[in-house]
């Protein structure tokens, strides 16, 4: 009897403690998601809309700007995420060596970019990559190139700047996750491997990497979601240009809703493309990770 009363009190407290969260998420997360799904089947401009069936989905396949935004987002994803994760792993492996000198300095320096706001660092990059700016000066001084590059005026180089910028901002962030995970690996495993004469690269490949797999998966999923939502950087460095070469899906949704004559239904359809991409890519990444285990 007494036990069931305690159980009931526990139940009541359990719900009471999460009630504010459930109300807020219900109103500002679940409801918008459902509404967005409904809206994606509506056509029309401004607040006048009517049911359009698959009109928006057909429009997607014929919209060159959408296809370009999709391609750009894909390029950023495929090129940037692997570069960043490999760099973060290398830095973490180097910093995990207790005999390394200036460890604290290196760790803080590489993590420092993470404390800047996305808007602030975007503007720093925009000013550094100006056509007669400091990056051109330094690169010519170091004989890395002969003539200045019009970084933000050329589609290829504009994409490169965006990729460099994101890598600068997030490598240290991922590194901290790897470093924390590496410090949780039992030191005696490395000791045993060293006594058995396993070389350093093999210890990294066959001990560190497998042990870090869950963290690598976690950061890959997080980075994928982040890249699919890319907005602040492109809006502040290139505003999607030149000629839409750095336009991303999020920026396109923003333009559709708040820049042009609002077409909310179509914007919702584009946003569901991101939802589906996130779902499919996360699922694939989990699948790949599971496969490797077997």
């Amino acid at each position: 009897m007494a036990k069931s009363r305690i159980g009931r009190a526990e139940q009541r407290n359990g719900w009471l403690f999460i009630a504010p969260t459930l109300v807020l998420l219900g109103l500002f997360m679940v409801y918008p998601i459902v509404w967005s799904l409904w809206m994606s089947f509506q056509t029309g401009r401004g607040m006048n809309h009517s049911f359009g069936g698959f009109t928006n989905i057909i429009r997607l396949t014929q919209d060159p700007v959408f296809l370009r935004a999709l391609t750009n987002t894909g390029i950023f994803l495929v090129v940037q995420v692997p570069i960043m994760i490999v760099l973060a792993l290398l830095f973490a492996a180097a910093l995990n060596n207790p005999k390394l000198r200036f460890r604290g300095f290196f760790r803080t320096a590489i993590f420092l970019p993470c404390v800047t706001s996305l808007v602030a660092y975007s503007i720093l990059f925009k000013s550094m990559f100006a056509s007669d700016g400091v990056i051109n000066d330094l690169a010519i001084m170091l004989h890395l190139m002969d003539a200045p590059i019009s970084w933000l005026g050329d589609p290829f180089w504009a994409r490169t700047v965006i990729i460099l910028a994101i890598t600068w901002r997030w490598t240290g962030y991922n590194m901290i996750f790897y470093l924390a995970a590496m410090q949780n690996i039992d030191k005696s495993i490395y000791e045993a491997a060293r006594i058995d004469g396993v070389p350093a690269w093999a210890r990294f490949r066959y001990i560190t990497l497998p042990m870090l797999k869950p963290v690598i998966l976690f950061t890959t999923v997080i980075s994928t979601i982040g890249t699919l939502q890319l907005f602040d950087e492109v809006n502040n460095i290139t505003t999607g240009g030149p000629s839409d070469s750095t336009l991303t899906l999020s920026l396109y949704i923003y333009n559709l809703t708040f820049k042009f004559m609002p077409s909310l239904g179509y914007a919702a359809t584009v946003s569901y493309v991101i939802v589906i991409l996130v779902a499919v890519l996360s699922f694939l990444q989990f699948l790949v990770a599971k496969d490797r285990k077997a």
Partner: peptide, 23 residues
């Protein structure tokens, strides 16, 4: 409920931005 909450982690902000604004 917790499992459903975790699922919403994968919903990008861009997907709820338009309805949120109208709301």
């Amino acid at each position: 409920v917790f499992a459903v909450l975790l699922l919403t982690l994968s919903i990008p902000f861009a997907a709820i931005m338009v309805p949120l604004f109208v709301m």
